[in-house]
Amino acid sequence: MPSVSRGFHGRARDARHRLPPGQYETADFPVLSAGPTPAVDLDQWEFTIRTETGARHIWDWAEFMALPSQTQTVDLHCVTKWSKFETEWQGVSLDVLLKDVETSAEYALVHSYGDYTTNVPLEDLLDGQAWIAYRYDGDELAPEHGGPARLLIPHLYLWKSAKWVRGIQLLDEEERGFWENIGYHDYGDPWREQRYQGD
């Protein structure tokens, strides 16, 4: 009888099935930043949605915490080629935050504390696809991973899930963000390996 572990083979097949092209699995949670980690005081924290007409919808931390939250287990795919499976996040769905926002915009530019920005089609923030997450793996979200709150859009490369999020600007015309305006893809679908402009 062969002594090969069937369980081992089963897990390997599963990992390959869930890895987008060009990615490898890691059990770590690498910290990648384009700038210093801001220490955001919760008394000063605000999240703002500004529409294409200039209308503003603002939540402070207490108001944000009072919103209904969801807990999601998702896979993460970073454009630097690591993927991390089954990460657990708690946060507020963008469907909740955008529910009473009147807009005909098609694009969003996400802004962070610090100077980071990233662009996303508005439709990718809706229909249960995106959250403002404030807990990771059962704990408060650590500053190095984007705490107190970060955007989470697990179906796109992780640079779209802006850390230290402070607002979303709704736009009629697409505006490129921090990485998109120096070569990275406007959409960033890991399953189509959209890493750079032109991919």
């Binding site: 384009a34 700038g35 454009v79 630097t80 070569g183 890493r195």
Partner: peptide
């Protein structure tokens, strides 16, 4: 800041971005 999607150099005085460099397999920005 080197570990992310590209290289970022910031000012030691005000933290502004001085220079960014991105390499793809076929191009540099």
């Amino acid at each position: 800041y080197l570990g992310g999607p590209g290289m970022v150099l910031r000012c030691p005085g005000c933290d502004s971005v001085l220079l960014r460099l991105v390499r793809s397999p076929t191009q540099m920005w």
